Amino acid sequence: MDDPALTAAESAQLDAAVAALQRGECIGLPTETVYGLAADALNRDAVRRIFALKGRPADHPVIVHLPDAGSLTRYAREVPPAALVLAGKFWPGPLTLILKRHPKVPDEITGGQDTVGIRVPAHRLARALLQRFGRGLAAPSANRFGRISPTTAAHVRSEFGDQVPLVLDGGACQVGIESTIVDLSGGTPRVLRPGMISSAQIEAALADLGTPVIGSANAQIRAPGLLEKHYAPRTAMRLSSRAALAAPSAHRCVLALGTLPEGHIGLALPNEPVGYAKGLYAALRTLDESGASLIEVESPPDEDAWRAIHDRLKRAAAGSSQH
C-alpha cells in the first residue's frame, strides 16, 4: 500500500521510476544517507550501466537496497542471529550488513566476492519505490567514482546531466554521509566503514548475544568507501587545526567548525556531528566550485562521535591530491 503522505506528483514520479527500472535504466534515488544511482540489482546489464556511468572499478561492490528485512533471504543465503538483531534495531536506517550472498546475486553486485552488502533505507520515497518495484535495487552513491557524494537531486543532475534523465527529488539527505557497514559474514561482527550508527551502538545492540565487535583492521572483505582516496573535491584540500589555519587569502577557502574565523572566506558547519555530517558534502561541493586553489578544513574534535566524519575528511583530502 502506498504511503498516504505521497502527493499525486510524487506518485506519478514513482510510477515513472518503476517503469524506467523495469526497462533496465538507472535512476537517481534519494536516501537518508546520500543520493544513489539505482538499478535493478538482479539485472546484470543494468548494474553494468551503473559502473559505466560512475567510472567505478568492476571489483568494487555495490550495496543492495531492500524494501524490508523480510526480503533478506532473497539476497543472502545465510542470515545469522546478529543480522536479525541489528536489522530489528536499526532498519530502516543507515546500516549496511555484509552477508553471504545468495547464488542468484550476480557477480556485478559483489565484485566477484562471496558476500553481499544489504540495507533497508529510511527515506520515504526510497521505501515507497522499493515497495512498488518489489525487488532489490543496487544503488551506490550517484556521483563519479571517488568524487564528493551527492546529498540533493541537483547534485545528481550536475554530475550526470541527461545521462540520468530521471532523478527522484526527495530534498536534502537527513544523515548526509554514507551508512555504517558491518561485516557479519565471518565469525565476529566487524565494522568496515564507520557511519552515524557507531560501533558502540552496534555492540550495545548485540550485547545479549555476547558478541564482541571489532574494527576493520586486516579485513579481507572489499566494501564500498574503503579506498584511501574517496569523497574528494577537485580542488586541493587539507586538514588543519583552527590555530594552524593559514592567513586569510583570496585564493584559499575554509570549512570551519561553528563560526568562520575573522577575515577568512568560506563556510562554517555546526560544531556537533549530526549537523556537520548533514551539511558536509554540500559544503565541500560549494567550496569546490568557488574557484579557490585550496580548501582548508578545520579538523573536528578527536572524539568517537566524530569518527565517521574524520574518516570521510581523511579520504577526501587524500583523494584531492590526485586531481
Rank of each mutant, 00 (worst) to 15 (best):
P140C: 10
G161F: 04
F145V: 15
D169Q: 01
G176Q: 03
V175K: 07
I177N: 08
A138E: 08
V156E: 10
A138K: 06
R144I: 15
E159D: 10
P140H: 10
R144W: 11
C173N: 08
I177D: 03
G146D: 10
C173I: 10
D162W: 13
V164A: 01
Q174Y: 08
A172M: 14
R147K: 15
T151I: 09
R147T: 15
R147P: 14
S141Q: 05
S141K: 01
P150K: 00
F145D: 15
A172V: 14
F145W: 15
Q163A: 12
V164L: 01
H155G: 12
I148S: 03
F160V: 08
V175R: 02
L166C: 06
G170H: 08
Q163P: 10
R157S: 04
S149H: 02
S158A: 15
A153S: 12
T152K: 11
A139P: 05
V167P: 12
A138Y: 02
V175Q: 08
P150N: 03
A142S: 03
I177L: 02
G146V: 10
R147I: 12
G176F: 04
L168A: 02
V167M: 12
Q163V: 03
N143I: 04
L168T: 05
T152L: 08
L166E: 01
F145P: 15
D162F: 13
Q174G: 14
C173A: 13
V175W: 03
L166F: 01
S149R: 09
R147V: 13
D162V: 15
I177G: 07
Q174E: 14
S141E: 00
R144S: 15
V156P: 11
P150L: 02
G171V: 04
A142D: 01
R157K: 12
L168D: 03
S149W: 05
R144G: 14
G146Y: 05
A154H: 14
G171L: 04
F160N: 03
P150S: 03
R157Q: 11
A142N: 08
R147E: 14
G171Y: 10
G161P: 06
P150C: 07
G171D: 08
P150A: 00
T152C: 06
A139E: 05
